[in-house]
């Protein structure tokens, strides 16, 4: 399962410490091109840390991670260049508050990818249209709702033509009625064949579009199973407990 020929993301025996505290223990998995992986687990289990290791936002001390064959942990790797092509969506949106929505989407296209202003603007408008927010292009992030901000954040990542997308609890900070508008965009993306690694507790999303579910506890990958196996018969007791709690409400 974890050794697919066309692995986009390969995580191999990764361990990470904060001082003496071990937050990740020998994590191994991989994400094939076009695959959608959901990472779940109780808070403090290391899932956000793991996903941030994938684009090198968090350093790890052992093991290695490659994205499309490029080693993230190698000091010689040009991390900014790698990150420019790995889209990331954060729990708290992290739009740039002082820029208009248009500028939020354009600035990295211009300053990082070197696109012309016109080219960047065209791409920006195309993606804003796609997430249904073209009418808000001139506004600032503070003038949008949480759901709208998160859709902008997804569009911002897509502007960079990412080879894969990382989602770090993209709906956890949203009011309940805004969760679906964000999930709809993510489902659409998954259906188009985007490679995605999503830390989320949205089990409906996992059922609908994911290929595999990874369950983490205490910095360990406890379960790494196909969607049907995971929801049908999770092997570990910890995952069973977690599922019964999360699905009972």
């Amino acid at each position: 399962m974890s050794e697919m020929p066309e692995a986009m993301i390969k995580i191999n025996n990764v361990s990470k410490w904060y001082g003496d505290f071990k937050v990740l223990t020998d994590c191994t998995t991989s994400v094939a091109k076009g695959e959608v992986i959901v990472v779940c687990g109780p808070s403090g289990s290391g899932k956000s840390t793991l996903i941030k290791c994938v684009n090198g936002l968090e350093a790890f001390q052992q093991g290695d991670i490659t994205v499309k064959g490029i080693s993230v942990g190698d000091p010689k790797t040009n991390l900014p260049k790698l990150r420019a092509h790995v889209g990331m969506v954060f729990q708290h949106f992290e739009l740039f508050p002082h820029m208009t929505i248009t500028d939020n989407l354009s600035i990295a296209q211009i300053k990082v990818l070197g696109r012309s202003k016109d080219e960047a603007h065209a791409k920006t408008m195309k993606l804003l249209d796609r997430v249904g927010l073209k009418a808000h292009a001139h506004k600032h992030p503070g003038q949008l709702s949480g759901g709208q901000q998160q859709r902008v954040a997804i569009a911002r990542a897509l502007c960079m033509d990412p080879i894969c997308m990382l989602f770090d609890e993209p709906t956890s900070a949203l009011d309940p009625e805004m969760v679906n508008e964000v999930l709809d965009v993510m489902v659409q993306l998954a259906k188009e064949g985007m490679t995605m690694m999503c830390v989320t507790h949205e089990m409906g999303f996992a059922r609908k579009v994911s290929n595999r579910v990874i369950f983490m506890d205490n910095g360990n990958i406890v379960e790494d199973a196909t969607k049907d196996d995971f929801f049908g018969t999770p092997r570990s007791e910890r995952a069973q407990q977690f599922l019964s709690k999360i699905l009972s409400h």
Partner: peptide, 23 residues
């Protein structure tokens, strides 16, 4: 400024100096 802003800048492919300059 929250740590998330710095991470968002870096995640977009900005270098650290660019993250300071633009964000």
């Amino acid at each position: 400024i929250t740590h998330g802003q710095r991470m968002a800048g870096l995640a977009m492919g900005f270098t650290l100096p660019q993250t300071y300059r633009y964000i």
